[in-house]
């Protein structure tokens, strides 16, 4: 018997399960950082967390509010400069997993964190921008994306490609010369999506307990494909929930 949990908790737990012992992970702030640290305190104590502030091997005992919180520097194996993080560590392909979030994602897993609206000079909403994401999405061996699923966040085509998923479809990453293999999974509050091996379109491969494929389709701005062997995500274990809640309580402390 598992305790009651929220859809956000299920999402974070499912995202944490994507990381393994020894995985070298470039961590974005927010949902990815929460999930990455949950993994470190449960199934993957030896996951290596790299934040773009230059902290390699950070082992925070509480959740940082920002990617440059002091707890990251104090617990890191080494602190390097920002040019070094991008040039020596990310660019040559030394990082296994890029762990990102997004404001919008499209059917080919392209990510928008720049503007909402199609006129860049006169946007409806000005978002924070690229940060490290374009090169993380290009150069990590693979990418895991975590974000809440709504028709406004899951769109047919993003208003602005900040970071490339699969471009306009099969072969685009190779054509562009991107060294990493791109998004492997997208974890949402409804389920887990993966690119179809043939078309590169994001396809629902697992639903979280209590959600259905219909729920996920209704929260998607394109006709979402559903895997023929759709799985149901294992619910959070008591340990996962307990650790997650203890971590959340420390955020920014």
């Amino acid at each position: 018997m598992t305790a009651a949990y929220t859809a956000d908790e299920m999402m974070t737990v499912a995202a944490a399960r994507q990381l393994h012992n020894g995985t070298v992970c470039f961590v974005g702030i927010g949902l990815p950082s929460t999930a990455a640290n949950l993994a470190r305190f449960t199934r993957a104590p030896d996951v290596v967390l790299i934040y773009e502030s230059g902290t390699l091997g950070a082992k925070p005992d509480r959740l940082p509010l920002s990617i440059g919180d002091g707890i990251l520097a104090e617990t890191a194996d080494v602190v390097v400069s920002v040019p070094e993080v991008f040039n020596y560590w990310l660019q040559p392909g030394r990082i296994d997993v890029g762990f990102l979030s997004a404001a919008q994602i499209d059917r080919y897993a392209n990510i928008n964190t720049t503007v909402i609206g199609t006129d860049y000079r006169n946007p409806k909403v000005r978002l924070p921008g690229a940060g490290g994401a374009p090169e993380i999405a290009a150069s990590c061996r693979e990418v895991v994306v975590v974000l809440r699923q709504t028709p406004r966040t899951f769109v047919d085509r993003v208003d602005f490609i900040t970071s490339v998923g699969f471009g306009r479809g099969p072969g685009d990453r190779r054509r562009l010369g991107l060294s990493g293999s791109g998004p492997r999974v997208v974890i949402t509050d409804f389920g887990i999506l993966s690119p179809d091996p043939e078309t590169c379109e994001l396809t629902l491969v697992s639903v979280h307990p209590g959600s259905t494929a219909e729920d996920a389709r209704a929260a998607t701005g394109w006709p979402l494909g559903v895997s023929t062997d759709l799985a149901t995500t294992d619910p959070p274990t008591d340990e996962e929930l307990d650790v997650l809640r203890r971590l959340e309580a420390t955020k920014g402390a």
Binding site: P83, A130, A138, F160, D172, L176
Partner: peptide, 22 residues
Amino acid sequence: RYLAGASGLPFAVLRGYVGTDL
């Protein structure tokens, strides 16, 4: 860009931005 400025070079080279709308 900062690295190039600090090095007295006119520009820097990287693998970046490819395929994005930037």
